[in-house]
Design a protein around this nucleic acid. Sequence first.
DNA 1: CATCAGCTAGTCAAACTGATCAGAGTAAGA
DNA 2: TCTTACTCTGATCAGTTTGACTAGCTGATG
Lengths: 175, 175
Amino acid sequence: MVNLTWEDQEEKAMASRRNTTPIRDAIDRAVLEALDADSRMTILAISHRTGLARGTVQARLERYERENALRDHSVRIDPTALGLGISAHVAAELDQHRIDVAVEGLRAIPEIVECLAPAGETDLLCRVVARDPDDLYRVSEEIRLCPGILRTRTSMFLRQPIPYRMNQLLATITD
Amino acid sequence: MVNLTWEDQEEKAMASRRNTTPIRDAIDRAVLEALDADSRMTILAISHRTGLARGTVQARLERYERENALRDHSVRIDPTALGLGISAHVAAELDQHRIDVAVEGLRAIPEIVECLAPAGETDLLCRVVARDPDDLYRVSEEIRLCPGILRTRTSMFLRQPIPYRMNQLLATITD
DNA sequence: CATCAGCTAGTCAAACTGATCAGAGTAAGA
DNA sequence: TCTTACTCTGATCAGTTTGACTAGCTGATG
């Protein structure tokens, strides 16, 4: 399964030459809305929900897989269920010569669920989860002690007025 | 089958409430690691991958469902596949008397995939996606024009040194 | 107008699910 | 030590779903 067949490569090349996004029409919207509601829904269930033929749904799912329209890691687990009830941002200021070293160090901290590099004064922005405020302090200390990190600024999230969502965005696909 | 008395039921309820987190042991870790790798994996596939009996996996999945250990909306769709290649934070300063109105307005903007309320100087922090820098400007304008919003500060993400991940966290479950 | 890609609607064998059950191991309490 | 309550295992069974086919239809394109 390692090597791509010639046909696969050709298809990918064609797709990129056509400069289209893998997801474009009303069928994609319907299928993905179903998947967004429950990613474990069976093909047949999606077919019933959307009113599409089973083969169509099956073909689309295969296409998404082929074109990597779906993330490798599906984020279905609620950190709260792991006992990690609070989340926060830790903004880090770096020694600009040691960015890679710093990222390497951060990668080893499990509580960092994501790390972003924004334009602006902050060098790295880490999204972290923790058991409680005390635990959050521990995590932010761990971050501060990573090599190449000069200073950190932690800010806890009090509420999540809009939880992560994809459905509004999917609804905008009109074809 | 003997009927449970009210006391029995109460005791059971107490016991389940005493349970700290729905996810705790090595079995949970294995099952969830499999789900994290591919949330559409069949029960049988998870059973093979983890070496657990099929019934065990089935029982755990039912429990997760019952105890809401999994998020309602699974985030499997890559915004890039929708043609939304850039993401950013828009920090908003609010008229403190009209927070609810502001959130209501933000909810109507599809490009806002998440909105957080951090402790500190920023009132609301919106995670947004957009087609290109020009599109990002449009979205941040839309946010700025929401009722109750006084000022915004947009910062684009240049890189994502650590993409959203759950696996490191799952690996810490030791039982 | 002929071609072609993509959706629909069938079929079939193979795989999977949900619901059982009995048996075994284990932890907690009497 | 002997229950009792749990839970994981391994098994079966009927019903469902999948993957891989088929053929027919339609709209877009050259």
